[in-house]
């Protein structure tokens, strides 16, 4: 199980376009990736490839989230995804 913690750089939080960009990338990995608020229990983690699930987390600018994935390419995939989260796509 690979894990990454990322800080949301987008000013609108994980909403609209940033969320769309992120879920698209998450789908592209082909892995089952979950995302949760940093302090939330693992059971509350949601599917990172679903925009709605992402929005349901209600994550704002500056919040920290945990990405989790399993598989041979998980480390590289999570590196790429956390880079996306830590970029402000509206800048």
């Amino acid at each position: 199980m690979a894990e990454r913690i990322a800080t949301i750089a987008s000013r609108v939080g994980l909403h609209a376009r940033p969320a769309a960009v992120f879920t698209e990338a998450a789908r592209g990995t082909g892995l089952d990736i979950t995302i949760a608020a940093q302090d939330a229990p693992v059971a509350d983690a949601v599917d990172a490839s679903s925009i709605l699930a992402l929005m349901s987390l209600g994550i704002h600018h500056g919040d920290r989230v945990v990405l989790r994935a399993e598989g041979p390419d998980a480390e590289a995939a999570l590196d790429a995804l956390s880079r996306i989260l830590e970029t402000d796509h509206d800048a």
Binding site: I51, L52, A53, M55, S56, G58
Partner: peptide, 11 residues
């Protein structure tokens, strides 16, 4: 699944 606190968007 989603009910934004602002009431303007629902999933």
């Amino acid at each position: 699944m989603v009910a934004m606190a602002t009431g303007h968007a629902f999933g």
